[in-house]
């Protein structure tokens, strides 16, 4: 549907972009291994590329679009990063902690964190990769207590272990539930406690 690819609606993304760029600069100065990911849209591109990108968008070529985010290369430093964000960059609120499984064959999950600052009115999302065969990451509850339930939920949906979580019980599923429903390779159960599921 190439007709949809018109140059409107970038407004809301702009705010994300500014926030991500500022946070990226501050974080890399503080020594965190972070990369900035930004959507390849003409409005965000460097001067030389803008025309090419605009042409590609016109043709309906699929380019990555959406919010800019900061990617953390070393997932072991997530707690330090959160502390930095809270104390230095005034991101007081944790909005969301979740994960994304892109495909069953993928080796990694995306760990996704979303922050909100009530003073600067900016939003920031931070990503980090969590390998599926070593599916653990430090819990950020000591920094943001609000992440408590989000982490419990993500843990049972994706099978991620949040090390150091104060209360690692099941959140929504029954305690004896088998499998992690939001993984792409999840098989729907046939029966539960003798009640058939189909």
């Amino acid at each position: 549907m190439p007709a949809l690819q018109r140059d409107t609606g970038w407004g809301p993304m702009q705010a994300y972009f500014e926030a991500a760029r500022a946070a990226h600069a501050a974080l890399s100065q503080a020594g965190f291994p972070v990369e900035l990911h930004q959507p390849n849209l003409p409005v965000f591109a460097a001067e030389g590329e803008a025309k090419e990108l605009a042409a590609a968008h016109k043709e309906g070529k699929h380019l990555w679009r959406g919010d800019a985010y900061v990617q953390l290369a070393d997932r072991g430093r997530i707690v330090g990063l959160c502390r930095f964000l809270r104390d230095q960059l005034a991101y007081q609120q944790i909005i969301d902690v979740t994960a994304v499984d892109h495909a069953a064959e993928d080796k990694e999950l995306w760990g996704m964190y979303a922050f909100l600052s009530l003073t600067t009115k900016l939003r920031l999302s931070v990503k980090t990769m969590i390998p599926k065969d070593d599916c653990r990451i430090d819990s950020i509850v000591p920094v943001y207590p609000g992440a408590n339930w989000h982490e419990r939920e993500t843990a049972e949906f994706y099978g991620i272990t949040y090390t150091g979580h104060p209360d690692p019980r099941h959140m929504l599923l029954p305690d004896d539930w088998v499998g992690n429903p939001l993984r792409k390779d999840y098989k729907f159960p046939e029966e539960y406690h003798g009640i058939s599921c189909v």
Binding site: L173, P174, W177, P181, F188, P189, Y192, I195, S196, V198
Partner: peptide, 13 residues
Amino acid sequence: KFGYTVMKGVDRI
């Protein structure tokens, strides 16, 4: 179809 935890009708219990 996709509700893995949903009971397909309360008449099962």
